[in-house]
Amino acid sequence: MGPLIPQGIITGQWDFVIALLIGTAFGFLLESSGFSSSRNIAGVFYGYNFVVLRVFFTAMIVAMVGLLYFNYLGWIELDMVFVLPTYLAPMILGGFIMGLGFVIGGFCPGTSYTACAIGKLDGFAFLGGFIIGVFIFAEAFPLFENFYYSGYMGNITIGEVFSVSNELVTFIFVIMAIVAFYVTWLIEKKVRKNRTESKFE
């Protein structure tokens, strides 16, 4: 059966309507979970609010487990699902720069859209900076074109890298996520004692 669009089951302009609907649901969930506030998001780095970690890891393990069950039941062809290709060094650098940007800016692109949507000027500032950043990258691209394509490993999965099954990888992720939920709950309780405010709007 799935995925529907790559298999040509849904065609024409319908995919844009679906994109719009999926985007709307995405924006709604980000905003209603509290991702439109940069101070909520940054709490993950200082221990007073772990909402980012909770939402992020829960979503990840649910999707992972679901995807593997769908594959098992033959509802989705895992080979046709887009597995992000791995470029070792550029992706490590990218993660590095984004980590820095995260702790300074307090948003990521998706959450900045929702911050803009409810009228936060810092969301607009972040988005503006983001546009400038992408523009700078594109203009300077010839300087590091070789680096950008270096370390290519193909559309490799985590299981293939560590030569274990992806089911085991998922199981380990689930366990790690649940341990993380518990530990951060303990940390949060401790940190919040010394704070008057830990949730922001």
Binding site: I5, P6, E77, D79, M80, V81, F82, V83, L84, N155
Partner: peptide, 8 residues
């Protein structure tokens, strides 16, 4: 891998 969709 057979045909996969283009990048995100």
């Amino acid at each position: 891998k057979t045909k996969a969709t283009a990048g995100g």
